[in-house]
Design a protein around this nucleic acid. Sequence first.
DNA 1: GGGGAATTATAAC
DNA 2: TTCCAGTTATAATTCCCC
Length: 697
Amino acid sequence: MRGIVKEREIEIERGIEMEKNENPRPWEAYHTAYTNAKAGMDGIDKEKVQRVVYDMSKGSKYFENEKRKEDLIKQRIENIRAQCAKLTAADVTHYQKLADRRILELEAARDLSRIWLHVDMDAFYAAVETLSNPSLKGKPVAVGSMSMISTANYEARRYGVRAAMPGFIACKLCPDLIFVPTDFKKYTYYSDLTRKVFEKYDPNFMAASLDEAYLDITHVCNERAITSAEISEELRTSIYEETGLTCSAGVAPNRLLAKVCSDINKPNGQFVLPNDRMAVMTFIASLPIRKIGGIGKVTEHILRDVFEINTCNEMLQKGGLLCAMFSHTTADFFLSVGLGLGRTDAPQFKFRKSMSSERTFSVTDDDALLCQKLAEIAEMLSAEMKKEGLCGRTLTLKLKTASFEVRTRAMTFQNHICSSQDILKYASKLLKAEYPVSLRLIGLRMSHLKEGKVGALSDPRQKTLSHFIMSGDALKNKGDCSSLSSEISYHIVNDTESDFSFDTRETYHSEFRDPLDSNYLPDLDDNSQTFGKSLGQMERILESFSDGTAEKVNAWNMAEFTHKKEQHEESQLLETESSSSGQLNRVNDEANMLNNDAIYSSNQLLFWVDDHKCSLCGIELPQSFVAERQEHFDFHLAERLQNEESGANSKKFKLNQRLITSDATTSQGKRKKHKPPPKDGGQIPIHAFFVKSNQNF
DNA sequence: GGGGAATTATAAC
DNA sequence: TTCCAGTTATAATTCCCC
């Protein structure tokens, strides 16, 4: 063992010697998330750390990918430079005026009336672990695994070990490093203790994570007529008494600055920035931009290399160029950073927007293994969604290839889904479209969320919205949801109820959302009220079949519909499996076709007899003609709409515009990739299609 | 051109 | 021996359809 280590060291030395000839310090160019400054890392031999990180990474797939990303950033920098060079004198004057005006506007809106406190627990996970195992005290400790470290204590940081660093590199930096696996139950317990303290100072405090929170202490300062520094001191003492853990705090007129301040006297310290414009401007003037939350490695890189901006003050000096080169949102952010501005308002409750689950595994290209991983992740995600009573309309598949390249593939449905079967069904289509592929990670994310009802039927543990509220589970957020069978009909007919969700204690401790806020209007679009409803009904009826509750619903042509749906799904599966190239549009079309079939099922079914013949007009279209099939469907739908038409509210049939057009004429030739739908009665012989089909490959 | 969907990237903990 | 995470949000860009 010793021999191997020695050999490796010699090898590294030799490598360094060789590289010295070309680039004497190659490691300096290798920037990772964990090579920037961090509290507790002063006085360490940064060059040595950087060199070890570089040597441990060099040549790996990860390293190659980082280089690729670095090159892309360099390219981006070049592009911005080129854009800058194109600016005429008139442009420069124009953007400078724009920046000046914007600076005045932002300055006019400066709010110095609030006092914000940011609390950050010191090396939280590691401190908790040391508390429960005092033998760790004084020793370098990392919480995490060989592949990734979540937190390192200050003893370990002296060696250059830190969060987001892979464990095997940390081992190299600090051979005596003690690894402790993460135990979120423990951290949550201590986090709750700290939050009880926070509540005393600000009942609406904003929890940023398990170990960080923002408190508006304006009121408590005024009420008790003591300084913010005293409040901060008192709060920190109180936290120590309650938990035995130390924390650091920052006090400032806004949240952005408070966060910066809490980092200044870490660990176990505090820093107060007075509510005074001059003080703020002086403070911000020489502050490195990387200290600002929201400016990360890449943004720093771009601002430094293109605009020579290193401090916040320089943001104002280069305001004109920033306005010229960046979007309104981004330029505004940069200018407000230059002025030391940040949010001062009471935190608004925010809905969860997405939920995801991902896992890393040993690289494999085995389809069966990948399918198995996908099924596990679908199961995990579905379980989490059901736990929170959510379902979603957009499913995103995330893949990380063997070479660390990240890909995402998404599809949006008309209905919200949450069952593991549904998630897996569509996720499989997305994944199979990528074959062959060698992967090291698979992830699934659901977005376009709303409180679930589909899931309520498929998951007997799930409660309805009203039960969730009435039981008080909303506040505990631990709803063990159980649906009553008598409620099935309620769910089926009522698809338009308002959405409400509640604080999860993981995010904000603020008031509930204002239901009148237009940003949070419930999902009342046409789709969910009309066609969406009938689709939802059909799906639910099907689900209730599988749950053995078929007798509770009165379906129309249920047996036939079920049969055809299965038949269609089977054919879809075959289609996808036999497809060798990734055709995302096709996959989407297939999913849409499924829904379209469901719409038609309420009257007369459109399906493909023997997989190629239209059940309505007999036209023959093979499976591979997805676009043609879609248009053919559009054609029949338009035909039917015209027949049913007149009095009927045309809005009633307004479907997702990407799926179906509302009349026969507009559906023709609008989609670039699609061919015109067949003329009525003008059947094309099946062999002609197959010839055409073959030409496509 | 507006708007939704899809994709990629950045950032934070 | 081990060999670069998981979760969430958001911005920017592109594509497609109306």
